[in-house]
Design a protein around this nucleic acid. Structure first.
Lengths: 126, 126
DNA sequence: ATAATATATGAATATATGAGCATATAGAAA
DNA sequence: TTTCTATATGCTCATATATTCATATATTAT
Protein backbone atom coordinates (compact mmCIF):
# COMPACT_ATOMS: atom_id res chain seq x y z
CA UNK A 1 0.00 0.00 0.00
CA UNK A 2 1.19 3.48 -0.82
CA UNK A 3 2.02 5.70 2.10
CA UNK A 4 -0.28 8.36 0.74
CA UNK A 5 -3.22 5.97 0.67
CA UNK A 6 -2.42 4.71 4.15
CA UNK A 7 -2.43 8.27 5.45
CA UNK A 8 -5.70 8.95 3.66
CA UNK A 9 -7.28 5.99 5.38
CA UNK A 10 -6.07 7.34 8.71
CA UNK A 11 -7.22 10.88 8.00
CA UNK A 12 -10.82 10.35 9.01
CA UNK A 13 -12.27 10.76 12.45
CA UNK A 14 -14.51 7.71 12.35
CA UNK A 15 -11.73 5.49 11.10
CA UNK A 16 -9.28 6.80 13.68
CA UNK A 17 -11.84 6.08 16.37
CA UNK A 18 -12.31 2.54 15.08
CA UNK A 19 -8.58 1.89 14.98
CA UNK A 20 -8.21 3.29 18.47
CA UNK A 21 -10.65 0.85 20.04
CA UNK A 22 -9.57 -2.25 18.14
CA UNK A 23 -5.83 -1.68 18.28
CA UNK A 24 -5.41 -4.11 21.22
CA UNK A 25 -8.43 -6.38 20.88
CA UNK A 26 -10.84 -7.63 18.29
CA UNK A 27 -14.41 -6.30 18.37
CA UNK A 28 -17.48 -7.23 16.40
CA UNK A 29 -19.27 -4.62 14.32
CA UNK A 30 -22.06 -4.25 16.84
CA UNK A 31 -19.61 -3.58 19.63
CA UNK A 32 -17.83 -0.96 17.56
CA UNK A 33 -21.13 0.76 16.81
CA UNK A 34 -22.21 0.64 20.41
CA UNK A 35 -18.97 2.00 21.81
CA UNK A 36 -18.59 4.77 19.25
CA UNK A 37 -22.28 5.52 18.95
CA UNK A 38 -22.06 5.50 15.17
CA UNK A 39 -24.54 4.30 12.57
CA UNK A 40 -24.63 0.75 11.35
CA UNK A 41 -24.08 1.27 7.62
CA UNK A 42 -21.63 4.06 8.12
CA UNK A 43 -19.56 1.97 10.51
CA UNK A 44 -19.71 -0.95 8.13
CA UNK A 45 -18.46 1.14 5.24
CA UNK A 46 -15.51 2.53 7.13
CA UNK A 47 -14.65 -0.99 8.23
CA UNK A 48 -14.82 -2.04 4.62
CA UNK A 49 -12.38 0.64 3.57
CA UNK A 50 -9.95 -0.28 6.31
CA UNK A 51 -10.31 -3.95 5.45
CA UNK A 52 -9.86 -3.39 1.71
CA UNK A 53 -6.63 -1.60 2.36
CA UNK A 54 -5.43 -4.29 4.78
CA UNK A 55 -5.32 -1.96 7.71
CA UNK A 56 -7.57 -4.30 9.63
CA UNK A 57 -8.32 -8.01 9.35
CA UNK A 58 -11.30 -9.99 10.47
CA UNK A 59 -12.60 -13.38 11.47
CA UNK A 60 -16.14 -14.65 11.52
CA UNK A 61 -18.11 -16.32 14.24
CA UNK A 62 -21.58 -17.24 13.02
CA UNK A 63 -23.07 -14.00 11.65
CA UNK A 64 -20.71 -11.88 13.68
CA UNK A 65 -17.64 -10.38 12.12
CA UNK A 66 -14.78 -9.46 14.41
CA UNK A 67 -12.27 -6.88 13.26
CA UNK A 68 -8.79 -6.35 14.57
CA UNK A 69 -5.76 -4.28 13.61
CA UNK A 70 -3.26 -5.65 11.14
CA UNK A 71 -0.14 -5.55 13.31
CA UNK A 72 2.16 -5.92 10.31
CA UNK A 73 1.59 -2.24 9.74
CA UNK A 74 3.38 -1.45 12.96
CA UNK A 75 6.40 -3.37 11.65
CA UNK A 76 6.27 -1.86 8.18
CA UNK A 77 5.52 1.73 9.11
CA UNK A 78 7.63 3.11 11.87
CA UNK A 79 5.38 6.11 12.40
CA UNK A 80 2.29 4.03 12.92
CA UNK A 81 3.04 2.73 16.40
CA UNK A 82 3.64 6.22 17.73
CA UNK A 83 0.55 7.44 16.02
CA UNK A 84 -1.81 4.91 17.56
CA UNK A 85 -0.20 4.57 20.98
CA UNK A 86 0.97 8.10 21.65
CA UNK A 87 -0.46 10.78 19.42
CA UNK A 88 -3.90 9.32 19.00
CA UNK A 89 -4.43 9.34 22.75
CA UNK A 90 -4.35 13.13 22.65
CA UNK A 91 -7.10 13.32 20.10
CA UNK A 92 -10.60 14.51 20.84
CA UNK A 93 -12.54 11.26 21.14
CA UNK A 94 -9.80 9.01 22.40
CA UNK A 95 -10.45 9.21 26.13
CA UNK A 96 -14.17 9.06 25.66
CA UNK A 97 -13.99 5.99 23.44
CA UNK A 98 -11.35 4.13 25.44
CA UNK A 99 -13.25 4.80 28.65
CA UNK A 100 -16.35 3.32 27.09
CA UNK A 101 -14.33 0.37 25.83
CA UNK A 102 -13.08 -0.38 29.34
CA UNK A 103 -16.53 -0.02 30.87
CA UNK A 104 -17.93 -2.28 28.21
CA UNK A 105 -15.26 -4.89 28.85
CA UNK A 106 -15.86 -4.68 32.60
CA UNK A 107 -19.56 -5.24 32.13
CA UNK A 108 -18.72 -8.77 30.98
CA UNK A 109 -21.27 -8.50 28.23
CA UNK A 110 -19.99 -9.83 24.95
CA UNK A 111 -20.98 -9.49 21.33
CA UNK A 112 -23.51 -12.33 21.55
CA UNK A 113 -25.62 -10.64 24.21
CA UNK A 114 -25.07 -7.07 23.16
CA UNK A 115 -28.42 -6.41 21.49
CA UNK A 116 -30.29 -8.76 23.75
CA UNK A 117 -29.53 -6.71 26.84
CA UNK A 118 -30.12 -3.45 25.02
CA UNK A 119 -26.78 -2.20 26.19
CA UNK A 120 -26.70 1.44 27.21
CA UNK A 121 -23.70 3.28 28.58
CA UNK A 122 -25.90 5.83 30.33
CA UNK A 123 -27.41 3.16 32.51
CA UNK A 124 -24.11 1.44 33.21
CA UNK A 125 -23.22 1.75 36.86
CA UNK A 126 -19.54 1.12 36.24
CA UNK B 1 -4.66 21.45 15.04
CA UNK B 2 -6.65 18.28 15.12
CA UNK B 3 -4.78 15.07 14.43
CA UNK B 4 -7.31 14.17 11.79
CA UNK B 5 -6.70 17.41 9.94
CA UNK B 6 -2.96 17.02 10.23
CA UNK B 7 -3.20 13.56 8.70
CA UNK B 8 -5.43 14.89 5.96
CA UNK B 9 -2.83 17.50 5.08
CA UNK B 10 -0.21 14.74 4.89
CA UNK B 11 -2.39 12.42 2.84
CA UNK B 12 -1.61 13.98 -0.51
CA UNK B 13 1.24 13.08 -2.78
CA UNK B 14 2.15 16.62 -3.77
CA UNK B 15 2.15 17.80 -0.19
CA UNK B 16 4.24 14.84 0.97
CA UNK B 17 6.73 15.62 -1.78
CA UNK B 18 6.90 19.26 -0.71
CA UNK B 19 7.44 18.33 2.92
CA UNK B 20 10.11 15.85 1.91
CA UNK B 21 12.26 18.41 0.15
CA UNK B 22 11.85 21.25 2.63
CA UNK B 23 12.15 19.19 5.79
CA UNK B 24 15.81 20.15 6.26
CA UNK B 25 16.09 23.42 4.40
CA UNK B 26 13.98 26.31 3.25
CA UNK B 27 13.19 26.61 -0.45
CA UNK B 28 11.44 29.30 -2.44
CA UNK B 29 8.32 28.46 -4.41
CA UNK B 30 10.17 28.47 -7.72
CA UNK B 31 12.71 25.98 -6.39
CA UNK B 32 9.97 23.69 -5.16
CA UNK B 33 8.25 23.80 -8.56
CA UNK B 34 11.50 23.17 -10.38
CA UNK B 35 12.57 20.24 -8.25
CA UNK B 36 9.18 18.55 -8.20
CA UNK B 37 8.23 19.52 -11.73
CA UNK B 38 4.82 20.68 -10.59
CA UNK B 39 2.67 23.55 -11.80
CA UNK B 40 2.90 27.00 -10.36
CA UNK B 41 -0.65 27.52 -9.14
CA UNK B 42 -1.01 23.98 -7.97
CA UNK B 43 2.20 24.18 -5.97
CA UNK B 44 1.16 27.50 -4.54
CA UNK B 45 -2.18 26.14 -3.40
CA UNK B 46 -0.67 23.16 -1.65
CA UNK B 47 1.79 25.46 0.04
CA UNK B 48 -1.11 27.62 1.12
CA UNK B 49 -2.86 24.66 2.70
CA UNK B 50 0.24 23.58 4.54
CA UNK B 51 0.85 27.15 5.65
CA UNK B 52 -2.74 27.72 6.80
CA UNK B 53 -2.50 24.66 8.99
CA UNK B 54 0.89 25.69 10.35
CA UNK B 55 2.65 22.69 8.96
CA UNK B 56 5.09 24.98 7.23
CA UNK B 57 6.24 28.52 7.88
CA UNK B 58 7.73 31.08 5.56
CA UNK B 59 9.84 34.17 5.29
CA UNK B 60 10.01 36.66 2.50
CA UNK B 61 12.97 38.03 0.62
CA UNK B 62 11.84 40.63 -1.87
CA UNK B 63 9.14 38.90 -3.97
CA UNK B 64 10.43 35.49 -3.08
CA UNK B 65 8.74 33.43 -0.43
CA UNK B 66 10.76 30.75 1.28
CA UNK B 67 8.95 27.90 2.96
CA UNK B 68 10.29 25.58 5.61
CA UNK B 69 8.92 22.90 7.88
CA UNK B 70 7.45 23.86 11.24
CA UNK B 71 9.73 21.85 13.48
CA UNK B 72 7.39 22.20 16.44
CA UNK B 73 5.32 19.48 14.83
CA UNK B 74 8.15 17.02 15.37
CA UNK B 75 8.03 17.86 19.06
CA UNK B 76 4.27 17.77 19.34
CA UNK B 77 3.58 14.73 17.22
CA UNK B 78 5.76 11.76 17.99
CA UNK B 79 4.79 9.96 14.81
CA UNK B 80 5.78 12.81 12.57
CA UNK B 81 9.54 12.46 12.84
CA UNK B 82 9.42 8.79 11.87
CA UNK B 83 7.07 9.58 9.08
CA UNK B 84 9.25 12.18 7.41
CA UNK B 85 12.67 10.68 8.15
CA UNK B 86 11.97 6.97 7.87
CA UNK B 87 8.72 6.02 6.21
CA UNK B 88 8.61 8.80 3.68
CA UNK B 89 11.96 7.74 2.26
CA UNK B 90 10.39 4.50 1.09
CA UNK B 91 7.70 6.29 -0.86
CA UNK B 92 7.61 6.47 -4.63
CA UNK B 93 8.95 9.92 -5.35
CA UNK B 94 11.27 10.32 -2.42
CA UNK B 95 14.53 9.20 -4.01
CA UNK B 96 13.77 11.00 -7.22
CA UNK B 97 12.99 14.26 -5.47
CA UNK B 98 15.82 14.12 -2.95
CA UNK B 99 18.28 13.29 -5.69
CA UNK B 100 17.13 16.33 -7.61
CA UNK B 101 17.36 18.44 -4.48
CA UNK B 102 21.00 17.41 -3.99
CA UNK B 103 21.87 18.02 -7.64
CA UNK B 104 20.20 21.40 -7.47
CA UNK B 105 22.13 22.32 -4.33
CA UNK B 106 25.38 21.17 -5.90
CA UNK B 107 24.74 23.32 -8.94
CA UNK B 108 25.20 26.37 -6.70
CA UNK B 109 22.30 28.07 -8.40
CA UNK B 110 19.96 29.76 -5.98
CA UNK B 111 16.43 31.05 -6.07
CA UNK B 112 17.50 34.41 -7.48
CA UNK B 113 19.04 32.98 -10.63
CA UNK B 114 16.72 30.03 -11.09
CA UNK B 115 14.58 31.37 -13.92
CA UNK B 116 17.38 33.43 -15.39
CA UNK B 117 19.48 30.37 -16.19
CA UNK B 118 16.46 28.39 -17.36
CA UNK B 119 17.38 25.57 -15.03
CA UNK B 120 16.87 22.11 -16.45
CA UNK B 121 17.73 18.87 -14.70
CA UNK B 122 18.07 17.03 -17.98
CA UNK B 123 20.97 19.24 -19.02
CA UNK B 124 22.65 19.12 -15.64
CA UNK B 125 25.98 17.34 -15.89
CA UNK B 126 26.00 16.52 -12.17
C1' DA C 1 -39.88 -24.24 6.02
C1' DT C 2 -40.19 -19.05 8.24
C1' DA C 3 -38.65 -15.43 11.19
C1' DA C 4 -35.11 -12.86 13.32
C1' DT C 5 -30.52 -10.88 13.56
C1' DA C 6 -25.76 -9.15 12.09
C1' DT C 7 -23.53 -7.24 8.58
C1' DA C 8 -22.96 -5.57 3.83
C1' DT C 9 -24.27 -3.04 -0.17
C1' DG C 10 -26.66 0.05 -3.66
C1' DA C 11 -28.58 4.48 -4.62
C1' DA C 12 -29.03 9.24 -3.73
C1' DT C 13 -27.23 13.36 -1.96
C1' DA C 14 -24.20 16.76 -0.15
C1' DT C 15 -19.81 18.28 0.32
C1' DA C 16 -14.87 18.38 -0.37
C1' DT C 17 -10.89 18.20 -3.09
C1' DG C 18 -7.37 18.64 -6.70
C1' DA C 19 -6.13 20.40 -11.15
C1' DG C 20 -5.77 23.87 -14.68
C1' DC C 21 -6.39 28.31 -16.61
C1' DA C 22 -6.56 33.08 -16.32
C1' DT C 23 -5.89 36.96 -13.70
C1' DA C 24 -4.44 39.73 -9.61
C1' DT C 25 -0.99 41.46 -6.49
C1' DA C 26 3.29 42.92 -4.82
C1' DG C 27 7.85 44.00 -5.22
C1' DA C 28 12.06 44.95 -8.22
C1' DA C 29 14.22 46.77 -12.11
C1' DA C 30 14.47 49.96 -15.79
C1' DT D 1 6.51 56.18 -14.35
C1' DT D 2 6.33 51.44 -16.99
C1' DT D 3 7.71 46.80 -17.21
C1' DC D 4 9.01 42.45 -15.48
C1' DT D 5 8.90 38.64 -12.27
C1' DA D 6 7.42 35.66 -8.25
C1' DT D 7 3.68 34.25 -6.00
C1' DA D 8 -1.26 34.13 -4.85
C1' DT D 9 -6.06 33.76 -5.90
C1' DG D 10 -10.73 33.27 -8.27
C1' DC D 11 -13.26 30.42 -11.31
C1' DT D 12 -14.63 26.11 -13.22
C1' DC D 13 -14.54 21.32 -13.97
C1' DA D 14 -14.11 16.66 -12.70
C1' DT D 15 -13.68 13.47 -9.27
C1' DA D 16 -13.76 11.67 -4.62
C1' DT D 17 -15.81 11.22 -0.22
C1' DA D 18 -18.87 10.68 3.72
C1' DT D 19 -23.48 10.10 5.09
C1' DT D 20 -28.17 8.32 5.17
C1' DC D 21 -31.86 5.37 3.83
C1' DA D 22 -33.47 1.27 2.06
C1' DT D 23 -32.60 -3.21 0.81
C1' DA D 24 -29.81 -7.52 0.27
C1' DT D 25 -27.26 -11.38 2.13
C1' DA D 26 -25.97 -14.75 5.33
C1' DT D 27 -26.47 -17.14 9.43
C1' DT D 28 -29.09 -18.59 13.48
C1' DA D 29 -33.28 -19.74 15.88
C1' DT D 30 -37.98 -21.44 15.82
Amino acid sequence: MKLQLFLKMLADENRLRIINIIKDNALCVGEIQTILGTQQSNTSKHLDKLKSNQIINYYKEAQRVFYFLNKDLVKNYKFFEDLIYTDLSKSHYSNFDLDRLIRYKNSKIDCDYLKEVNFDFEQLKI
